[in-house]
Simulated assay, not measured.
Amino acid sequence: MRLGFVTLKGRGRIDLLLADVVQRLEARGCRLDAGALEQSVVWVDETLEKAELLVINKFGKREAEGKGLSGSIARAFERDIPVLVGVNGLNLPAFLEFSDELAQQLPPEAVQIVGPCLGVQIPGSGGSDRG
């Protein structure tokens, strides 16, 4: 997986799912304050060279506009750092356009997301299949 995304219906369900994935991966990170988003972009970009995986809990309005963490996602992708992004239905069309449809939709189950984050292919999932 180079660029994977997951989408779920229901407020907060993506955050809970990605928190579970991060916990299973024993990853360290932080929760972003919406007011500090632009400052966080600088921090993410400065630490990207050490990253093994970039998890963005929400491809939101700012990213859909080409702002926020969209540049960080692109830079990680260019560096072959796997990227996992939570995308809600409202922003899914913008995300697919942003990703040039290279993103792989992952099943909304933490146990099935961990493998691709670690470089393990899920049987029956290939490329940009959005099922």
Rank of each mutant, 00 (worst) to 15 (best):
S40L: 02
S40T: 09
S40Q: 12
S40C: 07
V41K: 10
V41T: 09
V41D: 10
V42M: 10
V42C: 06
W43G: 00
W43K: 06
W43V: 10
V44Q: 05
V44C: 06
V44W: 04
V44D: 03
D45N: 15
D45W: 04
D45H: 13
D45V: 08
D45S: 10
D45A: 10
E46M: 04
E46F: 01
E46P: 00
E46K: 11
E46D: 13
T47S: 08
T47K: 05
T47V: 02
T47P: 00
T47Y: 03
L48H: 03
E49T: 04
E49I: 02
E49Y: 05
E49A: 09
K50Y: 02
K50S: 06
K50R: 12
K50N: 04
K50V: 00
K50I: 00
A51L: 05
A51Q: 03
A51M: 07
A51H: 01
E52G: 12
E52N: 05
L53R: 02
L53N: 04
L53A: 05
L54A: 02
L54P: 02
L54H: 01
L54C: 01
L54S: 01
L54F: 01
L54Q: 01
L54R: 00
V55N: 00
V55H: 01
I56P: 02
I56E: 02
I56M: 04
N57Y: 13
N57F: 11
N57H: 13
K58N: 10
K58A: 10
K58M: 07
K58E: 11
F59G: 10
F59E: 08
F59N: 07
G60E: 06
K61A: 14
K61C: 05
K61M: 12
R62P: 10
E63L: 14
E63M: 14
A64F: 08
A64S: 15
A64L: 10
A64K: 11
E65S: 12
E65R: 13
G66L: 14
G66E: 13
G66H: 14
G66I: 14
G66C: 14
K67S: 15
K67P: 04
K67F: 11
G68L: 12
G68R: 09
G68P: 08
L69H: 12
L69Q: 07
L69G: 05
L69Y: 14
S70G: 11
S70H: 11
S70R: 13
G71Y: 14
G71T: 08
S72I: 07
S72C: 11
S72T: 13
S72Q: 08
I73C: 10
I73T: 08
I73H: 09
I73W: 08
A74Q: 11
R75T: 06
A76T: 04
A76S: 06
A76D: 06
A76C: 04
A76N: 04
F77H: 07
F77T: 05
F77S: 05
F77P: 01
F77D: 02
E78R: 15
E78H: 08
E78T: 06
R79S: 07
R79F: 01
R79E: 03
R79G: 01
R79D: 03
R79V: 00
